[in-house]
Simulated scan of single mutants.
Amino acid sequence: MADQFTHFDASGKARMVDVGGKDATERRATAAGRISMSRQAYGIVRAGTVKKGDVLGVARIAGIMAAKKVDQLIPLCHPLAITGVEIDFSYDDARCAIEIRATVAITGRTGVEMEALTAVSIAALTIYDMCKAVDKTMVMSDIRLLRKSGGKSGLFVSPAAACYTDDAEHENHLVGE
């Protein structure tokens, strides 16, 4: 088990990985997810008329805050001095869904995949919280790592990232600030 999972020692006990000997490098991770909702709720979010306020603005702030607190939420994650977090949203009219994409950056000794994944998750939960009065059937799905770079393992690009191969095209579909 210790060969495959770094968070266990040779006897199978949980441990926080010692990253003290690693070089500090630029690291970046991008995660994505989606929240699908009823046509009615989707229309209200898209029109910006949710009674609680700016749904995507609040979800963006919640996701950024979550990325900074991952070590307090996931037991074996390191506290990190994150250097940047970007959260973007795009509308998927065909699915009545909001696509969420988070990118987290750091110059450090460990990656920021968990921070990007957590940012997406909390942004989706925030959207749910703000819209649940209209639709309790919303579904959060497809939360996944799209890309990570830096560190000893280098570049990872998920096959799921195919929908984001053209960043310029993606940027054209982003919801405004």
Rank of each mutant, 00 (worst) to 15 (best):
E113N: 12
K148W: 13
A116M: 13
G63K: 10
I87Y: 08
R27N: 12
D88M: 04
D92E: 13
I74Q: 08
L146I: 14
I44Q: 11
R109I: 01
C131H: 10
T137Q: 09
I122A: 08
R144W: 01
Y128I: 07
V70F: 08
V104R: 02
T126A: 09
I143R: 01
R39K: 12
G33T: 03
I61E: 11
G33A: 10
P75L: 06
I61L: 15
T137D: 09
G53A: 05
G63F: 12
A47H: 06
L56P: 02
V104P: 09
S121M: 07
P75G: 02
A124D: 09
S38E: 07
S149C: 13
K132V: 08
M130A: 04
E115M: 06
V55E: 12
P75C: 00
Y91H: 13
M37A: 07
I100T: 05
A124Q: 11
L125K: 11
L73C: 13
V104E: 04
V70H: 08
I106K: 03
G84L: 03
V112G: 04
R34Y: 14
A47M: 11
F89Y: 13
I44H: 05
A124G: 14
A47E: 15
T83V: 08
A133F: 05
L146A: 09
A67E: 04
L117V: 15
L80W: 04
K132Y: 06
A102T: 12
T126C: 13
V45F: 07
G63H: 13
F89V: 00
V85S: 02
V58Y: 02
D92H: 11
K132D: 01
I98E: 08
V112L: 09
S38D: 02
T137G: 03
V85R: 02
D142T: 02
V70A: 08
A41M: 04
D129H: 07
C131N: 01
D71E: 10
I64K: 07
V85I: 15
R109S: 14
A119T: 14
I122W: 11
S38L: 03
C77Q: 10
L76Y: 10
D88E: 11
I127T: 04
E115H: 01
S90R: 14
R46T: 02
G57Y: 02
T103I: 12
V139Q: 15
S38M: 00
I35T: 01
V112E: 05
P79W: 00
A124T: 02
R147P: 00
V70K: 03
V112S: 00
I44T: 11
R39G: 05
T126L: 06
K136T: 11
K132E: 05
D142M: 00
L125W: 04
G43N: 07
R27Y: 04
Q72W: 00
V70N: 06
I87T: 11
M65N: 13
D93P: 05
V112C: 12
A41H: 00
R147C: 01
T110I: 10
A124L: 09
G57W: 05
S36T: 02
R101M: 12
C131I: 06
L56W: 07
M140C: 06
I143N: 09
V55R: 04
I74K: 02
V55I: 05
G53T: 07
